[in-house]
């Protein structure tokens, strides 16, 4: 059994979970859609986009990024549920590559991310969001989102292994996810925030991906001429890769140490 086959079988397992317990994915789908509607229509009328442009066109790319971010919760919970159960003992006592649990989860997360992106595209179009610069740039933007999701999968896996308890994952992720996405350029342009908060928002790693995909979609509000905004594209690659390099080995080590 190769690591690739094992990873694929394990990814199939996680995707079957989605089919058999669709409640979870409904929550993960409805949250971003709600954000588009609430921010787009309720707060949107009072929102300005620096440099002009429609707020909902500014908002939708941010919600793409936010959705990737909230995926940490799904990954962490899924892994923690496994860790809490004897099923990991069975995996570990079988002659299969040990990497499969992690690679399978990350592969399944990529498929989920694609589904979430598709749902958001379908939700964005009727509220006025468009990609203006052609299909290749649309695909490049989706690629950046998937890269971000891959990095956040790593974080989720590590968190799920450390927490060992699904409730604990939710307790850690959700109180963090909201401020981390709000203090970024997802909903509001950093130029409109008080000075220091604006700086934090500009440097927030998830702002890099948001600005980068706004550029690639041709959406408004790609921001000030600050350094992180001006280098959003490379940063949208560097931040996730950095996260994978730092957190990935932590997750793997943690899994190995189960035998201690």
């Amino acid at each position: 059994m190769t690591a690739v086959t094992a990873g694929r079988v394990m990814a199939g397992r996680y995707l079957r979970h989605v089919v058999r317990a669709p409640e979870e994915i409904v929550i993960y789908f409805s949250l971003p859609i709600m954000f588009v509607l609430v921010f787009g229509y309720v707060f949107g009328s009072g929102m300005a986009v620096p440099g002009g442009g429609h707020y909902r066109e500014f908002l939708v790319p941010g919600v793409f990024v936010m959705t990737m971010f909230y995926g940490i919760g799904a990954t962490g919970t899924g892994i923690a549920v496994d860790m809490n159960r004897g099923v990991v003992d069975r995996f570990r006592s079988m002659p299969m590559p040990r990497s499969a649990l992690i690679t399978g989860r990350m592969a399944a997360d990529q498929v989920r991310a694609l589904l979430e992106i598709t749902a958001l595209v379908l939700c964005g179009l009727p509220v006025g969001w468009r990609w203006h610069l052609g299909v290749p740039r649309l695909l490049a933007a989706i690629g950046l989102l998937l890269l971000l999701r891959l990095a956040l999968s790593c974080v989720g896996v590590a968190l799920g292994m450390l927490a060992k308890n699904p409730d604990m994952v939710a307790t850690i992720v959700f109180p963090l996810a909201f401020p981390l996405t709000a203090i970024s350029n997802v909903f509001v342009a950093p130029e409109l925030m008080p000075g220091w908060l604006g700086v934090v928002s500009e440097w927030n790693p998830i702002s890099a991906t948001t600005t980068a995909i706004r550029e690639l979609f041709g959406n408004p509000g790609i921001g000030s001429d600050s350094w992180p905004a001006a280098h959003a594209l490379p940063l949208a690659v560097v931040w996730p890769v950095l996260l994978i390099v730092v957190v990935g080995p932590m997750a793997v080590r943690r899994y190995r140490n189960l035998s201690r």
């Binding site: 079988v9 079957r16 159960r85 004897g86 003992d89």
Partner: peptide, 30 residues
Amino acid sequence: RERIALTGQDAAVDDLLSGRQNLVLFGRLQ
């Protein structure tokens, strides 16, 4: 690991999958 199997105190099955899906999964992983 190729020669053993383990049935623990806490049933080592996947709760979300059906009985059949569980056995197919473990068969595939082996």
